[in-house]
């Protein structure tokens, strides 16, 4: 089938939800337009602002960094080495290789330097890795953005991530988490930097196709700790519907975002003070990250004593 846009070349990417097939060149144009549209539609940032992109070595974050640079934005990448054996080693290599190609210097944070790698933390606390990992990453990205003078932190969350998160929040009736689904989370007076999700209009399939066509060498293997994650079950359910009814995921997510679902009294509580230890925004005197760090250190010391 020929490309719908140019009509000249053989179609390489078929998108049922758009009832269209694109050749590789036209797909790149289509994809960048989708990202650009999300940035302007949700007023994520302006060309004058400085963006910190959270990169993991996976397809979404590297594609996001790539697109933002090609669209002419001032975007730096930041990678957190989680210390998860070969997975982290390979991911880090992918980030460094990409940065070299784009002649950028990524910010690297190594959790082993403070004894807070994911294997160390989960071994000490026996809590779910994904939620701990999310909290640790949020802390470091926000902290680095503030110190580096960035206006905005951009993550590679795509349409599938956001739709599956919404499905989970609805199934659990976690109404208080609805505001967190917005593609833009504004900065707070207590020091939370604005957070944006420029890939919200594109699916995982589209992001992977973009990476493959652009020759972006990304980490194709998943984090070993993500096995059995509930988000994967929600994605599976939505993809079953998408196979039968193309466009379901987009209608589900954007119907929600366009709707009247964000009541004033459901606003996510903003973190209103500064942590006494690190100075980052916090609900309590000491932020959740510093409390976690202290707990890990305490248990490590107790373990050494008992050995």
């Amino acid at each position: 089938m020929k490309c719908r846009r140019c009509g000249s070349f053989e179609g390489e990417v078929a998108l049922k939800r758009h009832n269209a097939t694109f050749c590789r060149n036209c797909f790149v144009v289509f994809f960048r337009r989708q990202v650009k549209r999300a940035i302007s539609e949700f007023r994520m940032f302006t060309p004058k602002e400085k963006i910190l992109v959270c990169v993991s070595g996976g397809k979404d974050s590297l594609v996001l960094w790539d697109v933002l640079l090609d669209l002419g934005f001032d975007a730096d990448g930041m990678y957190i080495d989680l210390g998860i054996g070969d997975y982290s080693r390979e991911s880090r290599e992918k980030v460094l290789a990409f940065a070299r190609l784009r002649k950028r210097e990524p910010i690297i944070v190594d959790l082993s330097a403070e004894g807070m790698t994911i294997p160390e933390v989960t071994a000490r606390l026996r809590k779910k890795a994904c939620s701990l990992c999310g909290m640790i990453k949020r802390h470091h990205f926000n902290s680095a953005a503030r110190k580096g003078g960035y206006d905005v932190v951009a993550t590679g969350h795509n349409l599938d991530d956001e739709a599956s998160r919404l499905l989970g929040n609805i199934i659990q009736w976690n109404v208080k988490y609805f505001p967190g689904q917005k593609p833009v989370l504004e900065e707070t007076s207590s020091g939370m930097v604005r957070k944006v999700k420029p890939l919200v209009r594109v699916t995982e399939y589209e992001t992977a196709c973009y990476a493959l066509i652009r020759g972006i060498d990304y980490m194709i293997y998943e984090c070993p700790y993500s096995k059995g994650a509930t988000s994967l079950a929600y994605k599976e359910a939505l993809n079953m519907l998408e196979e039968e009814m193309p466009g379901t995921k987009a209608r589900f997510l954007f119907g929600f975002l366009d709707g009247e679902f964000f009541r004033e009294d459901e606003k996510e509580e903003s973190e209103g003070r500064s942590c006494l230890v690190c100075g980052e925004p916090s609900f309590q005197e000491v932020c959740s990250y510093c409390r976690l760090k202290e707990e890990v250190a305490r248990r490590s010391a107790a373990g050494r004593k008992g050995a």
Binding site: V13, A14, I220, C223, L232, N239
Partner: peptide
């Protein structure tokens, strides 16, 4: 694309795009 035919004797690579956690 899904409508393309692959000939006998050819090799294809299959890549899942789902990421999660």
């Amino acid at each position: 694309t899904p409508d393309r035919e692959v000939e006998d004797g050819e090799t294809v690579d299959v890549l899942s795009v789902v990421s999660g956690g």
